[in-house]
Design a protein around this nucleic acid. Structure first.
Lengths: 158, 158
DNA sequence: TCCTAATTGAAAATGATTTTCAGTTTCAAT
DNA sequence: ATTGAAACTGAAAATCATTTTCAATTAGGA
């Protein structure tokens, strides 16, 4: 197979790295690709293990460092899940500030609207605060996880 | 000063502990009192240090354990602050699910309304999710911290 | 008062994340 | 293509928050 340039790549990871003056390394490409493919927030450890399972054995500290640099550039962002204190990372989605997150598998759906922007500023003003931001995430069980849960309770018998 | 029973105590901590079958100890009373007095979310370490400063030198593990038991009873709850991965605790406020939190000093104002309940359920349904909850917190600078910040930038000269 | 289970403190253990440092790699400039 | 400086990496050590262990103490009912 000849090595030709792919115009149709869904996201040019090398270009993205260059844009932020980060060197393009095998590790960074692998980490970003894995996170991109996962479609749900992941911890550094999860990324490390999934890469290892795929035969890409990078240092755990490299995973942490890469996530850290990418966060500083604003390419990815931290996410916190209810009842879980570990730090998850996901691609930051400009304009998509809010999400519907499955508490079972962490699958994430972006919500386009923001129903609280005006409300937040109003509440801030009423209390003399300068509002700098807000958090709003919806948690629930996705269809797949609902099915899984049902299976567990009624193991295919009446 | 005679030792008389205080009817006007703002919150009967011993009674609260007994209600949840927790023994009434000096440590637990001290920890709850300190958290109650602070009017803002605190970490275990902060509680430990503030108690120590007040001459009450309890083990850090006791602080952690006490916070853990009280959380299990639902007396207090965890809170997460933006850009900070440590676990904060605050009294749980039934019905006050949302807050306006100062990012400078963590002073907290409870918000009575919930402008996102219906919206959350609707978004969940649209995506086939069973909604189990949502998070919504507003962040900003309180009047005091705004003043402090201004001082820093213009150190009282023109 | 006495007894037992709950609680405590100190220290060790754990788990997540960060830092250190020597060796390697990228990439811009030759 | 080669080179060199700066950036990056991996492994191990360090750090930080939190939890657990365990022997000694304490609360509160009998």
């Amino acid at each position: 197979m000849p090595c030709h340039h792919q115009d149709d790549a869904p996201l040019e990871i090398p270009a993205l790295l260059k844009k932020y003056h980060l060197k393009v390394t095998r590790q960074r490409e692998g980490i970003l690709t894995a996170l991109l493919a996962h479609h749900a927030p992941m911890t550094a450890e999860e990324l490390y293990l999934s890469l290892k399972a795929a035969g890409e054995n990078y240092g755990l500290s490299t995973v942490y460092r890469t996530l850290g640099s990418l966060e500083q550039c604003g390419v990815i962002e931290k996410a916190f899940l209810p009842g879980d204190t570990s730090q998850y990372y996901r691609f930051s989605q400009r304009g998509h500030r809010h999400h519907l997150i499955c508490v079972g598998c962490r699958k994430t759906v972006s919500i386009d609207e923001c129903p609280v922007e005006q409300f937040s500023v109003a509440v801030g003003e009423k209390n003399g605060f300068t509002v700098t931001g807000h958090s709003f995430e919806i948690f629930g069980l996705c269809p797949d996880c609902q099915a899984l849960k049902k299976e567990k309770h009624d193991p295919q018998e009446k």
